[in-house]
């Protein structure tokens, strides 16, 4: 079990990680989700022992390991860049942590072959990393992390540099690969969809602060505040200001039914897939700025009352730029925030 007790990091007066407390249990998969520079890597480094926290303590398996250097902790780390020993064969690369640990020769061969089999690297064992594709190089780095048998495995955007189809495949395999080892897996990513696909638990990070930590779907469906909802949204969450008077919300000049809340100002969050052109809901005028097509889905970027919105539709739908459209919002799925950004009802 890895426990962070109020762990924080401040460098020359600027806060890199605000004091955070988390408990990660063996065999769990934990996602750190946040945009670039939100502190994911810093948090990973604190967990690994590469950096020393300025406040708080790190406990691992019941012992305080704060300040214990990384070499003595037996953690494994995989980076976004493919980090392998270029002059060694794939076999030697995978075997390297075992050689350092002084494992017997036939035991090394057995474990390397098993890891290579899991990661489909068996045909490449005698080649050097640079002659392999990006996917195979990253598999080699992952295999090395697996044979090491660490109880804490830290993955820092491990799939970011791969083609998306490879990413899809490897992402589906990853949790299974490590599940058998009983290790605590921590996976940093910038992509909300990746967090959802991985499942497990998710911690959302924003500007060095852990804003929420819990089961992934819970965090996604019931964000505690607007910042978390924005961090955990892809495409971005649409928001619009609303005022409640006499049992109804006043939104962009329209009146819609509101739940039981005191009168006052609110922020309504609407997920892009709850916006459509043909639903019921109140009509909202919008202008198309641009359409992005991913294949299975289309992201229609819009302008609503001066702020950018996104509508997510299935299949290929190409709307002309600058076209005027009328949006419908699915009122059942509104997320209501107070004007200070706390979630009230979802």
């Amino acid at each position: 079990m890895l426990e962070l007790k109020g762990v924080g990091k401040t460098v020359e007066g600027s806060v890199h990680i605000a004091p955070a407390s988390m408990t990660l249990v063996p065999g769990s998969l934990n996602v750190l989700l946040g945009p670039t520079l939100s502190g994911k890597t810093t948090l990973l480094r604190l967990m690994a022992g590469l950096d020393r926290p300025t406040t708080g303590e790190v406990w691992f398996e019941g012992a305080n390991v704060t300040g214990v250097p990384v070499q003595k902790r037996g953690v494994a780390m995989v980076y976004q860049q493919f980090v392998n020993y270029p002059a060694m064969t794939v076999f030697e690369n995978i075997a390297s942590p075992l050689r350092v640990a002084g494992v017997a020769k036939d035991e090394i061969a057995r474990r390397v072959e098993k890891a290579a089999d899991l990661l489909k690297l068996t045909p490449y064992l005698s080649r050097t990393p640079l002659t392999l594709s990006g996917g195979q190089q990253q598999r080699t780095a992952l295999a090395r992390a697996i044979v090491k048998g660490s109880k804490l495995v830290l993955l820092d955007e491990p799939l970011a540099n791969l083609d998306y189809k490879l990413r899809e495949e490897l992402r589906a395999e990853l949790p299974k690969l490590f599940a058998a080892t009983g290790a605590i897996l921590v996976y940093a990513t910038t992509e909300p969809t990746e967090a959802l696909l991985l499942g497990g638990h998710t911690a959302t990070l924003s500007e060095g602060r852990v804003t929420q930590f819990g089961p992934t779907l819970d965090v996604f469906k019931r964000p505690l505040d607007l910042i978390t909802a924005r961090t955990f949204a892809d495409p971005p969450l649409n928001t619009i200001a609303a005022t409640k008077t006499g049992g109804r919300f006043l939104v962009a000049g329209m009146s819609v039914p509101a739940p039981d809340l005191p009168d006052g100002d609110y922020i309504l969050g609407i997920r892009p897939h709850h916006v459509s052109l043909d639903g019921d809901g109140p009509p909202i005028p919008a202008t198309v700025t641009v359409t992005e097509i991913t294949g299975s889905e289309s992201y229609i970027h819009l302008e609503v009352a001066g702020s950018p919105w996104v509508m997510l539709t299935q299949g290929v739908q190409d709307l002309e730029s600058r076209a005027k459209v009328t949006l419908r919002i699915d009122l059942k799925h509104l997320i209501i925030f107070s004007s200070s950004g706390e979630a009230l009802a979802a």
Partner: peptide
């Protein structure tokens, strides 16, 4: 884009376009 999504001519196109394929 619509043709590739709706009527892939080759199974590879079907697999490569769309997520999941």
């Amino acid at each position: 884009p619509a043709e590739l999504f709706e009527t892939p001519r080759h199974t590879f196109v079907g697999y490569f376009i769309g997520s999941p394929g």
